[in-house]
Nucleic acid binder design. Sequence first.
DNA 1: CGCAGTTGCTTCGAATCCGAAGCACCGTCA
DNA 2: TGACGGTGCTTCGGATTCGAAGCAACTGCG
Lengths: 170, 170
Amino acid sequence: MTSSPRPLDATQLGAYFALIEASSLLKHAVEQQLREAGDLSYVQFQLLATLGDSDTGSRRMTDLADGVVYSRSGLTYQAQTLESRGLVTRTPSADDERSVTVTITAEGSAVLAAVFPGHVGLLDHLLFAALSRADIEALADVLGRARDHMRQNPPRSAAPRRRKKADPAG
Amino acid sequence: MTSSPRPLDATQLGAYFALIEASSLLKHAVEQQLREAGDLSYVQFQLLATLGDSDTGSRRMTDLADGVVYSRSGLTYQAQTLESRGLVTRTPSADDERSVTVTITAEGSAVLAAVFPGHVGLLDHLLFAALSRADIEALADVLGRARDHMRQNPPRSAAPRRRKKADPAG
DNA sequence: CGCAGTTGCTTCGAATCCGAAGCACCGTCA
DNA sequence: TGACGGTGCTTCGGATTCGAAGCAACTGCG
């Protein structure tokens, strides 16, 4: 049953733990800053930032979910919340009648702008303060490649959909 | 109000996004593997692993919570769940009557051993496959320092406790 | 066209998570 | 000893999360 993979060496274990711990600590800290600055959860901020980053300020639900690594149903919930607060709008897509286009509003942009300086400040003090220029470049490079690799090998998160018929690989 | 911090440059932004995305993708994938292999959530696995790593197989609740970056109340919930499944025991501490000592059981160790090979295999294929030896060493080094820095500057997570007296800033 | 399989999103139910408040014990100071 | 603030954990209430199931629209094939 177990394919008995090579056990991880100390460096690999260190990298893994450091990745999980660092991201958890950072997320935690950022979440508090966002909550105080603009009453946003981390996901909500990610969604607004993703939309703000887009040329049109719009994205499809599915693309948003994939972008922030979130479940579809979770995104529906958050989109409803953001819409009720007037930070985004949801409109049926012209192309595809099934699809819903989420667009950031002026107020959404305002909230984003309001929390952003504090967000950047926190990152500066908490994450980048301990790192050199070369460290940051290495981080961007290595983690960027890791991310790309994982995006290409979706273990099952972003997999299209659980098929009904038996898995041919089984 | 806003202290107008230097905006982040492209490399910093890339490092930040890559960190969040990579950790999210990895967590997501690991969570599925753990669910299938031993019906464990990620936190539960982290807790068992932390206990298993200890010489005595025991830790205080607070130390566990800090270790895995979790709320106290959340840890209480998980400890109850793990206890009801017979994977850990909870006993009042001899030293301090308030304190609760959590100890991993033989069955807990067995579950841990059962999921571990798959866990390692997943890390190998998903995270380390895309990285060179030097990459992994850099990751462990840089993220390790970042983690240590963040642990020393608890933004408010591990802060002792919200005071009762009115906030002087108000 | 009409059917079958697929995709995009929402609803539903249950599990999980957190902060605030509460309770009990600990340590210090007089 | 007795008061008092600090610490460790749990309970409580509400918000958030996910997977499974459901519904509607799209696509390919004859």
